[in-house]
Design a protein around this nucleic acid. Sequence first.
DNA 1: GTCAATAGTTTGTTAGCACATTCGGACGTG
DNA 2: CACGTCCGAATGTGCTAACAAACTATTGAC
Lengths: 245, 245
Amino acid sequence: MAALPISIDRTSPVPLYHQLAEQLTAAISGGTLRPGDPFENEIAMSDRLGLSRPTVRRAISELVNKGLLVRRRGIGTTVANQMVHRKAELTSLYDDLVREGRTPRTDVLALSCEAYDDRAAEVLGLPPGSPLVSIVRLRYAGDLPLAILRNWLPPAMNDLTVKELETDGLYAVLRARGVRPTVARQRIGARNATAEERRTLHMSKAEPLVTMTRSAYDADGSPVEFGDHCYRADQYSVEVLVSDR
Amino acid sequence: MAALPISIDRTSPVPLYHQLAEQLTAAISGGTLRPGDPFENEIAMSDRLGLSRPTVRRAISELVNKGLLVRRRGIGTTVANQMVHRKAELTSLYDDLVREGRTPRTDVLALSCEAYDDRAAEVLGLPPGSPLVSIVRLRYAGDLPLAILRNWLPPAMNDLTVKELETDGLYAVLRARGVRPTVARQRIGARNATAEERRTLHMSKAEPLVTMTRSAYDADGSPVEFGDHCYRADQYSVEVLVSDR
DNA sequence: GTCAATAGTTTGTTAGCACATTCGGACGTG
DNA sequence: CACGTCCGAATGTGCTAACAAACTATTGAC
């Protein structure tokens, strides 16, 4: 068994269990530990690192919850059969494209601070007929038009500018204002494009669209954003990780 | 603040923290506690119930992870602004339809214990060219054909019968054999139907299909199932809950 | 030689304690 | 009356300790 080199900084404000979890994660995804390899047991690791067993245990639990490790009582902990493990996190399309090394570009087709949409208002927890901030964007991947993104935000977000929306993703802009989307409910489907959408996205004849409506919420459950997006199906698919742990 | 009536059974093999978590969950989803209501603090609750604070804390953490509660240091714990909270769990289409009160029906179009598919074999962790169990099913919702479900399983699953596949969902059949899918990676997209698919699903002209490929894994990360499904887009969409906690 | 009891290892659960951090409100001062 | 400071309350982090449960491997009996 490899005695992993771990360094813990007790002066750091980062919790010890999290420091440990991060370094263990790096060791696994970095390939130092391979699937099926036995993992150092909790007692030995806590002795070696001068940490208490609960602290070590909490760090390991983080990895178990992410599916990187498997614990078996009486046997020990082993590295899980690794999947590609691309987590389906709470990111915007913009972030995803950047991560894939593509260069996203955005055209803001419309930006209004007095839009009305009852479905969006309901999701945002506002009475029907409330004025909302509405954004319509055209997102390119490289030079190809990829998606039409329609979004509605609470009226407090009325200081958005076209410029920032064109240089950053919506979620980056929200985070810059201290808004942190934490949970989202997404509904994914498909339909045919309208004539206008076909024109905007340079689509030929009867190519289908992937549709996604998303309601995003803050940490305390208050609604943050409602989105209605459609993507060219030949260039886009959604990857989701479902877990039961 | 309501002092919730909680009863803990120390003779039960169910861990105390889980007993508590279940009863708290019931109290919230049952409406005894309403969104925004303050929650009994950890110290008081542990005193009242005769449990230690870590135990109470672990129970509360379960609810926080599920998004039912919001903890704020210095303030206390409150009930989250409730969303509909239909969790995107690891269920098959069959279970989903039953839960919605519709009556699913299944025709097994093909069942083979010596099928060959390199993409499926790779996902299942077997060398290319390995014989696999292959299932093709046509799923109805009520009287309407809804989806074509193609699935591949490891060769050990060669005792499946057409009968059980037509009366139960695939996941129920797997569970009956002691196989418990725990994590799955799904990729959702859209495309046009082939002529044959259009015939099978009674679709008119150029209606699109929602496609989903799924790789499902056991608790220890070993692959369990690979599926390639397509659904009539006018009757089907996928709901996903993404979380960042 | 085979099978069963047993000892040992490892994770799972629960308890109790100490201190740090953060937030809201009360209090006091200008 | 307004503003800033302090304090208490609640959660966050970390430690020690003990026992339970599950599994392996060895040992012992037949």
